[in-house]
Design a protein around this nucleic acid. Structure first.
Lengths: 181, 181
DNA sequence: TTCTATATATATCGTTGCGAAATATATCAA
DNA sequence: TTGATATATTTCGCAACGATATATATAGAA
């Protein structure tokens, strides 16, 4: 799924500036399963605009760069739906956290404990934000489904970390003792 | 976490060729939270070799390109541990599946049902593979912890899809009726 | 039997996308 | 008043992906 399609998806929910599209991937409804950078969003919007898949409207602003507000064009909607019908690429996860933890035996137990603690706090914060949406009726059914899945997965992750934290710490503590012997 | 560090991590578990490192990210113990391509692994191994962080041993093979077997050098172990101590970058997930599903209202219900069905089957297959490892004692505690977390998360995802599939289908079916009116 | 797919094994290369900096200003807190 | 944070876009070097090329063996399908 390239950034062009991602932008069309965001714009299909309503007009937005490049900056606002970035926020949709940083904090908004897509944040837990996709991300995109300025360096890819702005060129993508330019290309989409050239191809007539979106239309731009420049909004002058006091002492700030003009805000360019993009809306999806009918042609853009067709292109989006075609892209949505294609076979999805396999999911890709990148977690420094899990990579680091898989080498826990090389790290000081305190550090491992700290990493897990911070991660649990992060998940709990995300869960509060995602649950406190209270917009059951207003968002489309698919978006609501996906949000629910995010919540279920984050909750499982946080629960796992909480219930296996001590076990891991005990195991690497033991190894430490063996080294000391 | 760059590919060089990723390679050092794999090699810290034992010597391997570039091809085998790729497999560790494709099917092996890192597959559910990291991936790397040939186009990044081979140049990374060359760089690591030049810097003396890994050592190469060429193994001649019958009618095949020489297999280059890499092992981590003591200097490489230090670099790895230093990298592991750095603050982890935030997790990044990329899921075409969830992106597509969040626009379920634009898709034929049959297609949505098919996508969910295939995804459940994929999760169940992964779970079978990950659970059927039966190597409780032989793998390091961190790796075992991370594997357990993967299982917990995949199980939660599969369960959510199974228990909310009908609900979503009913919701987009309703919308279809409204359009037909 | 022949064709196709898959597995082993590495190298290269065009293109995509990231991440950080540059630019400009307003607001809020320390 | 200094620094941080937010709005808003552009640009650019670099990292990494994904596909292709090369070479061969085996296993299964047609």
């Amino acid at each position: 799924m390239d950034v062009r399609t991602l932008c069309l998806g965001v714009l299909s929910r309503g007009e937005a500036s490049g900056y606002e599209i970035k926020k949709a991937f940083e904090e908004g409804p897509f944040s837990h399963f996709y991300q995109a950078s300025f360096g890819s969003i702005y060129p993508a919007l330019n290309a989409l605009s050239t191809e007539g898949l979106v239309v731009v409207r420049a909004q002058a602003q006091d002492k700030r760069p003009d805000k360019k507000i993009y809306s999806i064009a009918p042609k853009g909607r067709n292109v989006l739906v075609t892209a949505l019908m294609a076979t999805p690429a396999p999911d890709a996860m990148r977690s420094d956290f899990l990579f680091i933890l898989s080498f826990a035996q090389y790290l000081p137990p305190d550090r491992v404990d700290q990493l897990i603690g911070e991660r649990i706090a992060w998940y709990r914060e995300m869960l509060t934000r995602m649950e406190g949406c209270a917009c059951g009726a207003t968002i489309p059914p698919g978006a609501n489904f996906v949000r629910g899945m995010g919540i279920a997965v984050y909750r499982a992750a946080a629960d796992y970390l909480e219930s296996h934290r001590e076990e891991l710490l005990a195991q690497i503590g033991e190894a430490d003792l063996q080294v000391a012997e």
